[in-house]
Write a protein that binds this DNA or RNA. Structure first.
Lengths: 147, 147
DNA sequence: CATGGTCCGTCCAGAAAATAAACTGATTGG
DNA sequence: CCAATCAGTTTATTTTCTGGACGGACCATG
């Protein structure tokens, strides 16, 4: 099966994974949420070849996750910013961070702390039910076909 | 950069991505949460080569996300079940599903519906703050070094 | 007791994709 | 003029993936 085939599957995981489901794309998204916007900055932070950066940025841009906008003329240079669609990946990234914090943080604790500006506290994300507001456990979820 | 290098980074995204950050691993995890447990079932559902299935299942098992347990003797056959650590990936998978539902569902709506057994409603996941309980917006989060 | 079926893998060669390293090109500052 | 910055592209190599065959341990059927 190919990338393009994945996008055609009648499954939201498959379709999302076709967009964000590889190592470097996820690492680039992480950096986006940390405020990184420029090609050189991505390249330097990730330490991987420029081809990959170019490729992934293009892909994310085509999918509307990032927007390529000029930040100077002579020569025109572009930076990559999260769109609203991209910002909606925040729960995905936070969930990944939190899982990593729980299972791979060293003695010293998690490498990054997250503060919720609204309440001012350091927090971790909690997945709750949109209907009753209670935390959702994996075992408390039942799945059925939607169409 | 290699997979193993990623795992060494002082970043929880990198460390998590080193474990779950590729297409097929994520698709396998999706199936795990849908109750798939056997080699043949993964292979048939994903339609990819057996080599990859074997490789990813082994990797996830080594990382303690899945547990390989016998379900019959003569001959001994094993199935793959999510461990507690694996179950904790539920928010990650749900966040991915929800993003896909929002941006890639067709006219007919999302391919799968999720019911919260506790309250009995179809729901979508909401990321909330562990401290104040309010929904967390990407823009309301501030990050700083933890050690 | 052969024959086919199930199930979980492994092995191999060729095809496809990912990746690194060097290069291009426009421009600015000294 | 020379070096530096920045955003890529090109080329060659390395890695991964595919598709199929194969193995081994059984079971059911005729």
């Amino acid at each position: 099966m190919k990338w393009e085939d994945l996008a055609q599957e009648p499954c939201s995981v498959a379709r999302s994974v076709a967009v964000i489901g590889d190592r470097w794309t996820l690492m680039i998204l992480r950096d986006c949420f940390l405020g990184v916007r420029r090609f050189e900055a991505f390249q330097e932070r990730l330490g991987i070849s420029r081809t990959i950066i170019a490729d992934r940025l293009k892909h994310l841009t085509q999918e509307g996750v990032l927007k390529r906008t000029p930040y100077q003329d002579h020569p025109t240079r572009y930076e990559y910013r999260l769109t609203d669609k991209g910002l909606e990946l925040h729960p995905v990234v936070m969930a990944i961070v939190h899982w990593g914090d729980r299972h791979y943080a060293g003695q010293a604790g998690p490498p990054l702390l997250h503060r919720h500006k609204t309440c001012g506290c350091d927090f971790h994300p909690v997945q709750t039910c949109s209907e009753c507001g209670e935390p959702v456990e994996a075992r408390a979820v039942e799945t059925r076909p939607g169409f």
